[in-house]
């Protein structure tokens, strides 16, 4: 839809682009705030929840987020403590 509009729109009609961008941005900022605000909390919560089942050190939970134009990737890496003789992850 946006692509079609972009194709058939003369160059000067940028207001529609502005509206699309703002819609996405405002919706995400309203619902959860910026990742910078909630990522540290997510990490803390994860450590706490996982810790209820397996002993993990705080440094063992890594949370990373990558943001693209159309897709966000949230990567969570949890390194479990070594079991006797063998590493598990």
């Amino acid at each position: 839809m946006s692509l079609l509009r972009a194709l058939f729109r003369s160059k000067s009609q940028s207001a529609a682009v502005a509206k699309d961008r703002l819609q996405v941005l405002i919706a995400s900022e309203r619902s959860s705030g910026t990742p910078a605000e909630w990522l540290p909390r997510l990490q803390k919560d994860l450590i706490e929840v996982i810790g209820r089942y397996v002993p993990v050190s705080p440094g063992a939970v890594k949370v990373e987020m990558e943001r693209g134009d159309n897709l966000d990737v949230l990567e969570i890496n949890i390194v479990l403590p070594e079991r006797a003789g063998k590493a598990a992850s």
Partner: peptide
């Protein structure tokens, strides 16, 4: 500029906010 599609209209801004 709103008519020529260069500027957000008051309806646009009201919808957004």
């Amino acid at each position: 500029r709103v008519d020529t599609g260069e500027m957000l209209s008051h309806e646009d801004v009201r919808d957004l906010l």
